[in-house]
Design a protein around this nucleic acid. Sequence first.
DNA 1: ATCTGAATTTGACATCGATCAAATCTGCGA
DNA 2: TCGCAGATTTGATCGATGTCAAATTCAGAT
Lengths: 234, 234
Amino acid sequence: MEETADMMNSNFKLNNRDRAVLMKTPFLSSLTGNSLVRMMSTMSVISLANRKSIFREGENADAFYCVLSGYVRLYQLNRDGREADIRICSPGDTFAECLLYGGTKYRHHAQTAEATTLARFDMQAVRDLAEQERDIAKAVITSLSKHLITTMDCVANDRLHTAPQRVANYILTRCPVDGGPASIRLPFQKNLLAGMLGLAPEALSRAFSTLRRTGVTVRGRVIQVGDVQALREI
Amino acid sequence: MEETADMMNSNFKLNNRDRAVLMKTPFLSSLTGNSLVRMMSTMSVISLANRKSIFREGENADAFYCVLSGYVRLYQLNRDGREADIRICSPGDTFAECLLYGGTKYRHHAQTAEATTLARFDMQAVRDLAEQERDIAKAVITSLSKHLITTMDCVANDRLHTAPQRVANYILTRCPVDGGPASIRLPFQKNLLAGMLGLAPEALSRAFSTLRRTGVTVRGRVIQVGDVQALREI
DNA sequence: ATCTGAATTTGACATCGATCAAATCTGCGA
DNA sequence: TCGCAGATTTGATCGATGTCAAATTCAGAT
């Protein structure tokens, strides 16, 4: 049976783009020399097609991951079996690294949301390394700190802002800072953006149409903003 | 001018209960000998009356804190000036420790929600210590990991469950595991519970009255559960 | 270029939870 | 014990968002 490259599970060398993403991760960006080598040696590269399961809630947590390309959805099921996204991981994001010292089982389901390349780190190996090498411990701390901050921001965003405000915030984080017009391109399906913002896809769609009044035009994945400053007022 | 003990800001020795809480913190529970001593020496104890500000959003983050007794509310203001609680910290909880490596400014307001005793850790001192002492770095990692997990659970809870479900979950976490009847006492005002669960106080009140159908009786701070098992089904 | 299944939008509706106001209740100090 | 101030509950209402179904658009494969 033949498989396409997308479907394959490979340990081959990183391509340049993936390598660049990996090196900018808080996890690796501060490492040099020996620490970097040892860290890389605990790692393998995995490529998965769209909608493949990476792990399931309750499974034994023996690895954590960094997204190199593509996207990963972390989600849980409620009592009725409906899925709710907890987090959408983009290239450069690390997930399940909190289980290094926080528990032994995965706490949600993880699934690719596109063809995706992951760096897989062996949990126990990194645990051991962190105890030996100061700079690895520090890298872990930095990574956890940043992750914690974005997660708290997520809670704040959910509790503080309405759907159009969340969307406006998202757009603003990807716009140039000056006040004029701007144009951005979503790097993924609206589906995923909805999940990031804690919205149903329909609610996202309606939020966009609310923002039309504020000079936001959406065509496919391209979002045009008439006046960035005006968007801040929302 | 005289102040009552409650209003005072003191560096006196810890009382036994506060010391016990402090030592069970993920931050200190794993430390021994020299590390423990050095960590304690970066710390001071602060007592504050109800509703005192600890820090404000945007201020320079030069300390993080651990709650020894009382409660602390972390909140933000939305555009209309309304407050939304991001997190309620109970005895044993640490807050703002993510700024050890995650940034230099506080990201929300922090205010006591009762007469409260805090352990205050100097940010730079702990940063330095963590780089010197392996077990302190490990303690930081453990603390951040656990904090990250509870914060992700908070997101999941907000996105997955209705108000009565959140309240039921909260009650269940403080009930004995077996299925029979149980009685618990809230350790704080309903106000705070509402903030923890991301609800308006009125919504919490209504959630309780919804749960009456499931055999939950509320009188003041005392909550009686007819059948713990039934509560799980909600 | 066309086709086809998936993604997105739109409409109609139901529900949840926030909000504001008023009524109670509670605990604490006089 | 009485009286307040603050906390909590209740009522009424509104707005925001989830849900389901149908229409439409989009993107990738042939």
